[in-house]
Design a protein around this nucleic acid. Structure first.
Lengths: 226, 226
DNA sequence: TCTTTTTTGTATTGATCGATACAGAAATCT
DNA sequence: AGATTTCTGTATCGATCAATACAAAAAAGA
């Protein structure tokens, strides 16, 4: 534990949180080194000594985001007694988080790096994998609800997970456009209004055609080059 | 009509279309002058002589996008006999357009410039205004449906418009993540499943609390700085 | 105290950004 | 033809990008 050289003059965790806020507000490519070092209160050599590179710093910032902001949004998914309650709380928590005063609007994982621009292919791919993991989390919750009898056997868990993930992604855009908390909560209520329709469309023969997009595995994807 | 100097050696409309595709695929900040001039087949002085600046070129590209790609998505809103049919066709056309082979996934107006980065505040504001106009288009269609008796008097047109716009925005993210056409169509069906719930929640007294976000006017918006 | 190790601040690197200066080329007008 | 006007290609502008070289500074180990 004995550390040898000159001690670091800043708190690494605090600096990382500042960096996360900058990336959150401006995105990966929009956040310049000058923005980051300015917010972190350090010079660029200290940043590179402590975090390695801008991309590595972003990776740590996203991980921190998932551990802090993300838990408030996602904790209800496994904890709620029913899938319906889980999704309702998930969407409500999203509305609250995306309109939290003093914090950037929307989601870092959705808005952080959409376009894969040469130097940010790795960053974009990481975020995309996280989004795919989130869809998978929703899908698994629906699967559980089917096993528990809350949802009918023919229920299309993948389609439902994709639908609610899509709504949540759209809420990031709405938040960025200045939607107030009430507007986001209204969107959440609208999405919950789809619940009965989604369940009833899973009749014995009327199972809606599935939505591919398997979470893992290299399925046939078109989409962007990130 | 007689033009004086040396004639332009390229087709301005063709070059603009190429620029639109570059902006569409890479976003405003992600598209460099080298990307643009390379795709347009001209040198930078010709670009500046013909379009003025990168920002002005983007403005023309967005306008062209609205006149070409946009019409396929939005034409059903005024033309369909009922609001329900209008929204259904609108979402289906969105799913088709966002997964069209040979074209970039998602929507230029949604993905073109989300973060307002210093030099792109004007660009970001323009896109935001277009998105607000789209929400207003949906809201006006719902209002018409109320007047025509298709929807009950207590129907919250603003909330419904915000909800369906949010779903469509989320579909851009899904498309960027590689969602195939079937997956996007499943999202559209999911959103339509919300219809009955939205209508029935507009009971004589149970009108859901409104979603602010007026389209024009400087209401109290938090949100980003663009 | 002296060496070793690590961090810090200053200054700078090559690359790329959007945007132009300039001169030659190609058209119309007188 | 000669003057005028506009466009084209080359070459480059200052600014900013992410990333470092370097030496002084501040700690522990010998």
């Amino acid at each position: 534990m004995a550390e040898r050289g000159r001690p670091r003059s800043f708190d690494r965790t605090v600096a990382l949180r500042r960096a996360m806020e900058v990336f959150w507000a401006k995105g990966y490519e929009g956040a310049s080194l000058a923005d980051l070092t300015g917010a972190m209160g350090i010079n660029s050599p200290s940043l590179y000594a402590a975090f390695g590179s801008k991309e590595a710093l972003f990776g740590e910032a996203v991980a921190l985001y998932g551990e802090t902001e993300g838990t408030a949004i996602w904790h209800a998914i496994p904890e709620a007694p029913t899938a319906r309650e889980a999704i309702r709380r998930f969407l409500e928590a999203t509305a609250e988080a995306f309109s939290a005063p003093g914090k950037p609007p929307g989601c870092l994982i959705v808005l952080g790096a959409l376009h894969a621009g040469e130097a940010s292919t790795g960053v974009c791919r990481d975020l995309r994998a996280r989004r795919a993991g989130n869809v998978e989390t929703l899908r698994a919750r629906f699967e559980r609800a089917v096993l528990e009898g809350e949802l009918p056997m023919g229920f299309d868990c993948t389609a439902a997970a994709t639908f609610y993930a899509t709504v949540q992604h759209g809420m990031s855009i709405q938040a960025l456009d200045g939607a107030a908390r009430e507007a986001l909560l209204a969107v959440a209520r609208g999405a919950m209004a789809a619940w009965d329709g989604l369940v009833s469309s899973a009749g014995p023969r009327g199972a809606p055609r599935g939505a591919p997009q398997e979470a893992s595995g290299a399925g046939t994807q078109r989409g962007s080059d990130c």
